[in-house]
Design a protein around this nucleic acid. Structure first.
Lengths: 588, 588
DNA sequence: GAATGAGGTCACAAGGTCAC
DNA sequence: GTGACCTTGTGACCTCATTC
C-alpha cells in the first residue's frame, strides 16, 4: 500500500516519451504516482525502437530536447540551458557511455533527460539520494537545515506534487521528498562510479525496451508473459544477473496452467461484472464519467443500483444454481463467533453501531447462524449521538434516521439498502471457480469473514478522499466532518485511508475482480475446516491476479505487492468494524 | 535519518565476520562509536579486535559485503566493490597468501574485506599509515596538504564518523583521522614487505580463530572453519553451488537500489540477530540442533534465553540509546485502544486471558499508555477454568499457576518471562533502518499494534505442529490437548495453523529478519499519524525482502507471496488475541 | 616487473547567494 | 520562500614514484 510515487520501471525515470526529431527525451512526471495510466502512456513513433543502441546525442538534437521536454521553464534561462546541453552531451570520458550532466544541472542519460523524483521537473542531479531538480533540492535542504515545521496541509495531506504546483503545499512537498527517499543519509559525494553508470544504462535500456514492447504491441507477447507468470514480481529484469535473466527469457511455451489462469481471469471477471451492478451502472457511460463526478450522476447510479441489483442477483440464482444450493449453509449452525465476530455491515461510529449481522445474514442465505452476538437483534439498530439517531454507513441510503420510524422499520429500510450488495458478494463467490468445491461450512465461513472486506473493496469508490466525502447508496454525498459529527470515528478515517490508496491504484475491472476474489478466499481462517483447500484456491487466484497485473503493468509489478498488502489492512478494517459491533454489545 | 545502531567491533575496526559459503568477509560498519559497552569484548593480540556481535550470514547470501557492511543507503558503489571482490580473490603472487588488492582499491586479506579505520567504509588500501577508504584518504590528504583549519564542530567535538555521515563534521573527521593514526610520517610506499604480510596473516588468522571459537563456533561447520584458516579463499568458492558462484562472478552489478536493499537486509538481519537471543541460543550449536528437539535441550535454550536476553537488551540500550530515547513514547498518551485493542501478550484461552498490556508496555517503554482496557490491571492475570488457574501462554514459563501465589506475584513472574522478548522486539524495531525516523507516536503505535505479531513470528518455532506440542519459555513442552483442557481455545488452534505454515517455509535468519521487520511496519495503521512515512518504510523493507527471497529462492518466487499472505493471518491472530482480552474484560 | 600508495584529476553534490 | 547559479568540497579513478 505504500504508494510508490514513481513508476517503478522506472525508479528514477517514470515516464513518458517524447519523440522529437528523432531524439527522445525520456521524461516522467513521477508525481502522478497514483496514476499508472499516465505512465508510459505516450508512445513515440517507431523511430524509437532501438532501445539498446544509445541514442546519439548530436548537437542539434540536444537542443530540440530541451525545447520540448515538457518543461515550461521560466523562459529566460531556457536558451542558455539548451546551449549548455549541447556542450555536455558527449560521450562520457569515464568510458561508460550514457550518463552526462551539464553544469547547468540537467542530468541526461543517453540523451534522455532524468526527471526530479519529487515533482517531475528536469533533474539537475542526484541530490540527497534522489534524482531531483534544483528547486526540490533547495527546498529539501532548507527544510532539513532549518528544521522547518510547515503549515498543515489545507487539503488531505496528499497533494500531488508537480512542477506546476510544487509550491502550493509545503507540507506535502516535504512529505513527498521524504517518501521518494530524500535524506541526508543518502547523499553521494564524488563522481559516480563507472559501474553505477553502467548499471543505469542497462536499466534504462531495459526499461525502454519493455516500454516499447508494451506500448506498441498493446499487450505483451506470450513470451514476455510467460516470463512473468511464475516469477515473483520484479521491478526490473535488468537488475538481475545475466544468467537469471536468460533463464527467465527462455522461450518456454506457456504451460497449461497459464491457460487455466486466463480462464480463471475470464471467469472471475465475468462473475464480478455480472454481480456488481453498482459498478456497471457507473462505468456504463465512460464519457459521462470523464465529464464529471457530479452528485446527480452518482445519485442516479446508486438509485439505479438499488433497484437493479436485486433483480440481477435473483436472475442469477435461477437455473444456474438450484434453489437448494441457495441456502449456502443449509441448517449449518455457525460456530461461535465470539472470538472473532464477523459483522459484515459497513458502518463506522465511535463506538456505537448497529448490529445487523444477523439480519443481513438471514436475508443473505436464508439461514440463521447461531451468532452469540446478537441477543437483542433488531432492537439496537442505530447510532445515537447526542440524542439524535444516525446510521453512519454508506451502505444505507442516508445517515439520518427518521425518528418517527420504529426500530423495526429503520432496520427494514437499512436492510433493504445493503442486502443487494451482500447478495451480490455471495453470488460472486459462488461463481469463483473452485469456491463451490469447498465445503459448505467453509464457504459460509469465508463469506461471513470476508463479505465486509469484499464490500469495502467494491465500494471504495464511495469514499472520495480528495473531497473528503462519502457517497451513500442513495447517491447523496456527506462530508467527513458531518459524518464525524454524527458519531463516525476512527473506522471512518481508516476506511478513507484505505479507499484512497486503493483508488489510487486505478484497478481495471479485471483486476478488481481477481482482487476481490483473492480477498474473499483470504478471509480469516479461524473457522475454516479445510484450510488446505482454501489455500489451494487462494493460490490459484493469486497466480491469476499476478499474471493479470504483470500483463497489464509489466513495469509496475509492485502493484501486485501493493494489493497483497491491502489484505492486512482489510483485515484490520474488518476487525475494527467487528469491534464496533462488539463494543456496541458491551455498551449498547 | 536512519540511525545505525549496530554494535560493532569498535572504533577502529568495528567489524564482524561474515561467513559466506566459505568466504569470510571482514567487514564493519563503524557505528555509533559511542557504544563501547557492547563492542569489542574480545581482542586479539594482534590488535584486531573482534566484535562481540559477529553476524554470520546465511550461507547462500551472495553479495557478501553488501549484506553486511552496514553501509547505508546510497550504496551505489557497493555493488561494484563486491563484484571486484571476487575478481581479486586470487592467490597472491607475492608468495604470501593473504593480502590482495583489487585495482579498484578494495583491500582484502585472505578474502576478508578490510575496512576504513576512520569511517568504516571499505578500505582501498593502507593510506597514511592506516587502512582507509578513498574518501578518507583524499580528505586527509587535502587536510594536510592545504593545512586546512576546519570550522569548529557544531556539536560536542565527538561526532561519530561513519560512512554515512562522515561529511557532516570536517573537524571531527580530521580528528578521527589523526586519532586512528593517520600521518604523513606513517606512509608506506611500495609493496608490502613479505615479513609484514606474513605477520598480518598470522594476526588475522589468530583473530579469526579466537572469534570463531568464542563467538559463534556454532554457526560454521568445523570443516568450513578449517578451510578458511588454511586455504586461500578462492578455493572456498569451488565449494559453493554453481549458481551461486555465477551470481558472484556476474559482471553486472546489482543496481544501486539493490545495493540499498542489500544494506537494508544487512542491517535488519543484524538487528534481528542482535535482538533475538532465543534464536541465537537455539542456533548456537547446529549439530546439537540437528540431533534432536529434545525437551531438555530446548529447556536449556529457553532458560538461557530468559537469562541472557534481558542482559543483551540492556546492553544494547546503553550508551547507544540515550536514556531519553529509551522512552519510546515519552509522555505520549496513547490514543484509546478501545476500538482496536492491542494486547501483546501471547496467550490463548477460550475467552479468558490475562490482560497485561499495560504491564508490559510499562516495562517496555517506561510509559503508560492510556489503555481504556485495563481498569483492573494486575487483578485479572490468569485464566480460570473449572476452578483451576492457568496461564496458557507459551511466553510464560508454565501454564500452571501456583494457587498460593498472590495475583501480584503471579503477574510479576509472568511479566518477567515475557518482558525480555518484548524488549527485544522494541530494540529490533529501533534498529530497523528508518524506523526511528518515524514520529515517536507512530513508533509507539506500530509497536503496540505489531509486537504481538512479531513475537508470533519469532516464536513460531515453539509450536510443533507435528507433535502437537507447545514449548513454553521454560523449555517444557505441553501437548495441545492438555492446553485445551486448561482452557486454550480457537486462538491456540489458529496459532498452530499459522506456525505450521510459517515453519514450513524454513526461512533463513535473513529472511526471518526482513519478514519480521515487514510485519512490524505493516501493523495496523488505525492509530498512525503519518501513514505515508510508514508506508514508505514498509515499501523499502518489502523490496528488500523480495530481493532477498529472489536471491535465495530464484525458483520459488511464490515464497514472497506466501509471506505477504501471512500478514493478514497475523492480523487475525492479533485480533483474536486482542479479542480475548476484550472478552475477558466483558466477562472477567 | 609487480605491487602499492601518494597525489592528481575532475565528475558531481552540498550548501551558499541573491534576484525575483 | 524559491530556485538558478556559484563556490567549495568529495571521492572514484588515474598516474607514477617507490619498494620488494
Amino acid at each position: 500500500m505504500a504508494v510508490v510515487h514513481v513508476c517503478l520501471l522506472c525508479h528514477y525515470m517514470p515516464p513518458f516519451f517524447l519523440a522529437l526529431g528523432g531524439v527522445i527525451a525520456y521524461i516522467s512526471s513521477s508525481s502522478s504516482a497514483s496514476s499508472p495510466a499516465s505512465c508510459h502512456s505516450e508512445s513515440s513513433d517507431s523511430g524509437f525502437q532501438s532501445s539498446s543502441s544509445p541514442v546519439p546525442s548530436s548537437p542539434n538534437s540536444s537542443s530540440s530536447e530541451s525545447s520540448c521536454n515538457g518543461r515550461s521553464s521560466e523562459g529566460s534561462d531556457g536558451a542558455p540551458k539548451s546551449d549548455r546541453l549541447e556542450e555536455t552531451v558527449k560521450p562520457s570520458q569515464s568510458g561508460v557511455a550514457g550518463l552526462t550532466k551539464g553544469h547547468n544541472g540537467v542530468t541526461k542519460f543517453n540523451g534522455m533527460v532524468l526527471l526530479c523524483k519529487v515533482c517531475g521537473d528536469v533533474a539537475s542531479g542526484f541530490h540527497y539520494g534522489v534524482h531531483a531538480c534544483e528547486g526540490c533540492k533547495g527546498f529539501f535542504r532548507r527544510s532539513i537545515q532549518q528544521n522547518i515545521q510547515y503549515k498543515k496541509c489545507l487539503k488531505n495531506n496528499n497533494c500531488s506534487i508537480m512542477r506546476m504546483n510544487r509550491n502550493r503545499c509545503q507540507q506535502c512537498r516535504f512529505k513527498k521528498c521524504l517518501s521518494v527517499g530524500m535524506s541526508r543519509d543518502a547523499v553521494r559525494f564524488g563522481r559516480i562510479p563507472k559501474r553505477e553508470k553502467q548499471r543505469m544504462l542497462i536499466e534504462m535500456q531495459s526499461a525502454m525496451k519493455t516500454m516499447m514492447n508494451s506500448q506498441f504491441s498493446g499487450h505483451l507477447p506470450n513470451e514476455a508473459l510467460a516470463e512473468h507468470q511464475d516469477q515473483a514480481p520484479q521491478e526490473d529484469l535488468s537488475s538481475k544477473p545475466k544468467q537469471e535473466r536468460e533463464t527467465l527469457k527462455s522461450p518456454s511455451p506457456p504451460p497449461s496452467s497459464d491457460m487455466a489462469k486466463e480462464e480463471v481471469i475470464g471467469m472471475v471477471t465475468r462473475a464480478h461484472k455480472d454481480t456488481f451492478m453498482y459498478n456497471q451502472e457507473q462505468s456504463q457511460n465512460p464519457a459521462e464519467m470523464m465529464q464529471s463526478q457530479s452528485g446527480e450522476r452518482v445519485s442516479k447510479n446508486t438509485e439505479q443500483y438499488m433497484l437493479s441489483s436485486e433483480h440481477c442477483v435473483s436472475g442469477l440464482s435461477g437455473p444456474q444454481y438450484p434453489e437448494s444450493e441457495q441456502h449456502l449453509g443449509g441448517q449449518y449452525k455457525g460456530r461461535s463467533t465470539m472470538h472473532y465476530p464477523s459483522g459484515h455491515a459497513i458502518c463506522f461510529t465511535n463506538g456505537h453501531c448497529m448490529n445487523f449481522t444477523n439480519g443481513y445474514t438471514q436475508r443473505l442465505c436464508d439461514r440463521i447462524p447461531e451468532d452469540v452476538f446478537s441477543p437483542n437483534r433488531n432492537t439496537t439498530y442505530s447510532c445515537s449521538t447526542g440524542g439524535r439517531m444516525h446510521l453512519v454507513c454508506p451502505m444505507s441510503k442516508t445517515p439520518h434516521v427518521d425518528p418517527n420510524k420504529s426500530g423495526h422499520e429503520v432496520w427494514e429500510e437499512f436492510s433493504l439498502s445493503f442486502t443487494p450488495a451482500v447478495k451480490e458478494v455471495v453470488e460472486f463467490a459462488k461463481r469463483i471457480p473452485g469456491f463451490r468445491d469447498l465445503s459448505q461450512h467453509d464457504q459460509v465461513n469465508l463469506l461471513k469473514a470476508g463479505t465486509f472486506e469484499v464490500l469495502m473493496v467494491r465500494f471504495a469508490s464511495l469514499f472520495d478522499a480528495r473531497e473528503r466525502t462519502v457517497t451513500f447508496l442513495s447517491g447523496k454525498k456527506y462530508s467527513v466532518d458531518d459524518l464525524h459529527s454524527m458519531g463516525a470515528g476512527d473506522l471512518l478515517n481508516s476506511m478513507f485511508e484505505f479507499s484512497e490508496k486503493l483508488n489510487a491504484l486505478q484497478l481495471s475491472d479485471e483486476e478488481m475482480s481477481l482482487f476481490t476474489a483473492v480477498v474473499l478466499v483470504s478471509a480469516d481462517r479461524s473457522g475454516i475446516e479445510n484450510v488446505n483447500s482454501v489455500e489451494a484456491l487462494q493460490e490459484t487466484l493469486i497466480r491469476a491476479l499476478r499474471t493479470l497485473i504483470m500483463k497489464n503493468h509489466p513495469n509496475e509489478a509492485s502493484i501486485f505487492t501493493k494489493l497483497l498488502l491491502k489484505l492486512p489492512d482489510l483485515r484490520s478494517l474488518n476487525n475494527m468494524h467487528s469491534e464496533e459491533l462488539l463494543a456496541f454489545k458491551v455498551h449498547p
